[in-house]
Structures are given as C-alpha cells and as structure tokens.
C-alpha cells in the first residue's frame, strides 16, 4: 500500500526527492572544497556536473507508478480546458461523436434484427402467411383474415404445411379494484407456442391442456408489458386477474422478444370452442412448409379456396417469410 500512501502524500514525496538530490549536490560541493577548490568554484563545478535538476526529478518521477495517474489527470484537465476555450469546436466535436455513436448503434440494431436474427421464432424463415382473392372477380381486393369455417378447412385439409396456427385479436379489459386497464390481447389456437418454439421467460407457455373444454382459464403476458406495467414482479405468476369480467390465472411471462401479433397478452381459444356464427375473422400463420418440389396450395385443399391463383409455395415464402397476415 506504499503507492497509495504516496499518492495522497505527493508533496511529501516531492520534498523527499528534492532533499535527496540536494544532499547529493552538497556532498559533491564538500568534496571539491576538501580538494582545495574555492567554495564558489566547487559550487559551480558540482552544479555543472549535476546538470538540470528538474530533468532528474522528472526521470525519478517517471520511475513511479502514480506518475501515470498524474499524467492522465493532467491530460484530462488540459483537454477539458481546450474544450472550454473554444465552445464551437467543443460543440461540433461532441455533436459529431454523439451522432456517430447513435448512428452506429442504430445501424447495428437494425442489422442485428433484420439480418442476423430477424425473428426469435423457430424456423422463422419457413413461416408463411396466406391471403386469398377471387380470380373471377374484377375486384383486385384480397384478404388474409378468415372466418372460422374457412380456418377450419385450412387446418384440417392442409397437406403442405406442418402446422397451422391462428389468432384473433381482441381488447382485453383488466379490472384492478377501481381502475381498469385496456390491453391488446390475442386469442390463439392450440399449438401456437409449440409452433414458435420460444421458451417462456418465467413460468410456462400455453400448453394443450389449456385449450381443453372446461380447463381453468389462463393467460401469458408479454415481457415488455410485464416490465412496464407490472414492475417485472416475478410473484405475479400464479396470480389471478380479472380480464373481461372473468378470472384468469397468469401462468407465464414470454421471452423478451416474443411479440406475436404485437399484443400484450395471449389467451387460449380452441377453434372448436368458437361460436361458428362469430363474424370475427382469424389471421392464420402456416409454418414450416415448402416441400422440396413446390406444390400448389390449391391442390386438394379446401373448397373455399377455389378461384385462388395457384401459387407455388416457394414464391409464397420468399420475401414475406416473416410478414404477418393482415
């Protein structure tokens, strides 16, 4: 700890160095005097031999560790004074640095999200959304949302894709005592979380039993919502929430980047449980398809798709591999 003490007692160290060198000089003078030189001449010659005292002192200081700290502090003060002296230069350099750092960060996060890891989902390059339009109609309109009977046909008659999942977006009113909050929620079909293959951050994702008739009502929460609205409280898992007037148990927090549908919570809904009269359309997402020889989606598939333009699978998946269905 000697260096620490020396750091605090810098002036003491300086004085010691001074008197050490001074002692040497005096000894030299005494020696010359002893060899019968006049005092003035002895002093002159000793000083000459000694050279610049300051230079020695500097060299001695350089041997010390704390010197580097000192130099750093001086450099820092010097540059700070330089910046203060010319405010315009300071402003421009700080602005340029900020711009550079900001731009690099932005570019990197865009590249990271768009190229390296576009979506955190399993086989995300093989996910496909479909849309339909009537070829016989002069109308060029198309749609990507399906009523339940349509969806059921896609699900049951699909021969091309490994799995089909769908979601219905709905406003979820969360009543907490006197206050209510509105969240965006998605009712999802069975297998949705297995489809995306993203493990939950806390608790569990929705599982097949949650979709059984009579199963206890549950839901999972988006990570960002959990952090911003619920202070990232891990004790929330297993708590019951009043959502749209019914009690539901929170069973899991999804991984940070899981944001399927852009909503804040996900609730289970089996397509079979849907009132077939419901006019609320589903969005469907078809996953992991693309057989090696492209097949036409229309071949052998549901009657509702008659009139669809036959579209080879690979052209479907290309370019829209991650776009969600409208």
């Amino acid at each position: 700890m000697r260096w620490l003490r020396r750091l605090w007692q810098k002036s003491l160290t300086e004085r010691c160095l001074d008197s050490e060198l001074q002692f040497h000089l005096e000894q030299q003078i005494a020696e010359y005097v002893a060899s019968a030189l006049p005092l003035a001449e002895a002093r002159r010659r000793a000083s000459l031999e000694f050279g610049g005292l300051e230079r020695f002192k500097e060299e001695c200081r350089e041997a010390r560790w704390e010197n580097h700290l000192d130099i750093f502090a001086r450099d820092f003060r010097f540059s700070f004074r330089g910046l203060l002296k010319d405010r315009r230069f300071a402003f421009v350099s700080i602005f340029a640095l900020a711009l550079g750092i900001g731009a690099s960060t932005a570019i990197f996060s865009v590249v990271d999200n768009a190229l390296f890891e576009p979506f955190p989902y399993k086989d995300s390059r093989h996910l496909v959304v479909i849309r339909i339009h009537d070829r016989d109609s002069a109308d060029r309109e198309w749609r990507g949302a399906f009523l339940y009977p349509e969806l059921r046909e896609y699900m049951t008659q699909n021969h091309v894709f490994d799995a089909v999942v769908a979601n219905v977006e709905d406003d979820i009113i969360y009543a907490a005592g006197e206050t209510t909050f509105r969240f965006g929620g998605d009712y999802v079909t069975p297998g949705t979380f297995e489809f995306f293959g993203v493990p939950p951050f806390l608790g569990r994702a929705l599982q097949p039993s949650d979709f059984q008739p009579g199963a206890p009502p549950v839901f999972v929460l988006r990570y960002a919502t959990w952090v911003s609205q619920f202070q990232a409280d891990p004790a929330l898992i297993g708590k019951t929430f009043n959502l749209n007037g019914a009690s539901r148990t929170l069973v899991g927090i999804m991984a940070p980047r899981f944001a399927w549908g852009g909503v804040e919570l996900w609730l289970p809904r089996s397509p079979d449980a849907v009132d077939s009269q419901s006019r609320r359309p589903f969005s469907a997402l078809l996953g992991d398809g693309c057989p090696s020889s492209p097949r036409r989606l229309t071949s052998g598939s549901g009657s509702r798709s008659h009139g669809d333009r036959p579209t080879p699978c690979h052209s479907l998946s290309r370019g829209i591999s991650k776009a969600l269905l409208y």
Binding site: E20, L21, F23, H24, E49, R55, F56, C60, E62, A63
Partner: peptide
C-alpha cells in the same frame, strides 16, 4: 545513500566507471 553509491562504484572500479546522477537516481527509484 545515493551519493556514496556513486562514489563507491567509482572508487572500486578505480575511477573507470562514473555514474551520472541522471542515471543513478532514476535507477534507485526504479
């Protein structure tokens, strides 16, 4: 002490070596 060190080196080497203060003290501190 430092002065005596330079004297000793000079003496023992029969004035062959001289140790300039500019080398001696930095070396001692090092």
């Amino acid at each position: 002490h430092g002065y005596a060190i330079s004297q000793r080196i000079q003496q023992i080497s029969r004035d062959f070596f001289q140790v300039p203060q500019g080398s001696l003290y930095p070396a001692l501190h090092r």
